[in-house]
Structure formats: structure tokens, C-alpha cells
Amino acid sequence: MSPPPAPLRPAPPKPSTRPRAAVGLSLGVALVLLFVAIRVLAPEAVGDVLSNSVQDFFTLSISVVIESLPFVFLGILLSIGVQVWLPDGFLLRHLPRNRVARRVTVSLLGVLLPVCECGNVPLARGLILRGLTVGESMTFLLAAPILNPVTIITTYQAFGWSDGILVSRILGGFVIANLIGWIYSRHPSPMSLLTPKFQASCAHAHDEVRASRTRRSVAMFDKETSAMLPALFVGSAVAGLIQVAVSRDVLVTLGQNPVLSVFALMALAFVVAICSNVDAFFILAFGSTFMPGAIVAFLVFGPMIDVKMLALMRTTFTAKTLVQLTVIVGLASAALGLAVNALA
């Protein structure tokens, strides 16, 4: 790769645009051709040197990437829509003023913007840049994967009304997301929950008005992929590694105990890092061996917290914040699961 000439100071954009675009474009096309050539010419025999477990690690990690990437792109597109194309102040004007009512509304935004959890991270970043508080964006981030039509329909298809699983999932997700939003709304300096890099982005959110919307959209795509994709690739590798290393038998054997099963399935949710749109079918397949409360805990905890999500959220929140978040969501999900088991 050779560098595109990069101005260190805000230069008058007009005069140099054209040749620079041509250079950039040919550079891009060259890179595309290079990648295509590698892909087409890579010898089949490369895979033969890998042992079965290593091969499975790659297959599983690649599967997570191929599955999640379109959702991340969709999330980035929606985030661009919110940040660049929605009129300034549109969002804040249309949300209720009252803080509680506003969080409740935000937690239902997933109904309008049905993205999977990985797509929600870029979108939540966009919402913060557009003036939502950190707590409100957390409420959105945690609620949207559960309170969206696709998830609700697939959960219904998998479980119907049996054992209150569907209702517990919807209500549990709603309550926990609003609880988190309320807790963090009381934080004395919410910006300190964010990574320094993202804080810097927030500081700049309002002074990029010179360029056209298209240019800003493309720049934002660039910026968001820089933040999200390294996290996605690392998170996928971790998810693949854990799947190869942790035996499912252990988790399944724990499934019969009303208390242990809740924690076993939460551990499973953390490890498999599966999309909320389909996790109901996934756990249905493990199905009858587990208590309903454990399944509820899986279906509530998994969309909010898992290895891949933590990697993605780390782009935005500090490690300390994520530890707190994981503990609170974990305790709340466990309490919900145990309560369902006690009533079942």
C-alpha cells in the first residue's frame, strides 16, 4: 500500500480533490484485485497441515465473522442515517423529556431498528454522538436485541407460550435494560464511562459541518469500521477458541439442577455468542434437558453480554464499565431465571 497524501492541517478541500480521488480509487481497486488474487490462487493444500481442532477453530471463527459482518454493516448504515441524514435535533425533539419515559421509549427503539446485537453497537455510538446520554444509549444497547420483532417472533416460534419463557424474556429484557439506564443516569460524570478515543469523537461530533453529507457518510463508514471490525475479528477468534476448548457436555450435565442450570446456561450464552434473532432455536435444540428458568436466563443474558459483544462494546466503554455492566446484568438475569424456576 502506498499512502494517499494526507493533509495534517484542515486544507481547502476543493482544489486537490480530483487527483487525490483518482489516486485513492486506483489504490482501492489495486487492493481489491490483490485480495481477490490471494483468494483465488491460494492452494487448497494449505488446509491439510491443520489438525482437526485447529481447523474447527478457524471454521467456527470464520462462521461468526461471515454471520455478523452483514449486521455490523447494517448497524453502521443506520448509525450513519441517525448521525448524518436525520435533521439536527430530530431525535431529541421527538423523545419524551421525562427521563424515565425517555428511557422506556429508547428501549423500544429496537422495534423500529431491528438490528442484531452486533449492529446495535455502532448504532448506540451514533445515538450518543447525537445527544443521547450514556445511560440512555446503554438502555438501547441492552434492550434492542430482545425487544425487536424478529427476536420476539423467533422466540414465539420456538417456545410458544409455554412456561412463560417468551413473556419472561420480553419483560426481563425490558426491566434490566431500564434498570441499567437508571443506574448509569445517576453516575456523576457519565463521559468517564467511555473510552478516551470515543470521548474524543464525541467532542468532535458537532464540528464537521463543512463537507457534504455523502462525504460525511463515507468518512463515518471509514471511522466506524476502524472501531468495530478489529473488535469483531478478535471477538470472533475468542468465540471460536472457547467453542473448541470448552466441552458442551459439562454444561449440559449441569442442566437439570434448578440453580446450577441457570448459571450453566448463562455461561453457555456467554461462550457461544450467538445472535439474539436465532438463539431461541439454538437453545430449543438443547431443549428439554434444561429448566425453563435457565432458558430464560440464557435468552436474556446472551443478547446483552457475551464474548463477542464485550469485544465490540470495548470500542466504546471502558473496561471497568463493562465489568460493572456484566456483573449487574448477570445478577439480574440469574435472579430472573431463578425466579422463573421457583414458580415453574
Binding site: 478541500p13 468532535h204 460525511r216 463515507v218 468518512a219
Partner: peptide, 27 residues
């Protein structure tokens, strides 16, 4: 579909890059 949309944005990013270099570098 998302890969193709992504491809368009990637190519556009190559063509239109310098816009935010200063911010990016700073952050």
C-alpha cells in the same frame, strides 16, 4: 446484499478519504 453495499462504501472511502484525516490522526 450487505457485502455489496459495503463494497460500494469501501470504494467510496478510497476515493474520498482525506476528509477526516486530521481528526482521525488526532484521536
Amino acid at each position: 446484499v450487505m457485502a455489496l453495499i459495503g463494497a460500494v462504501l469501501v470504494i467510496a472511502a478510497f476515493a474520498l478519504t482525506p476528509l477526516e484525516d486530521d481528526h482521525q490522526v488526532a484521536s
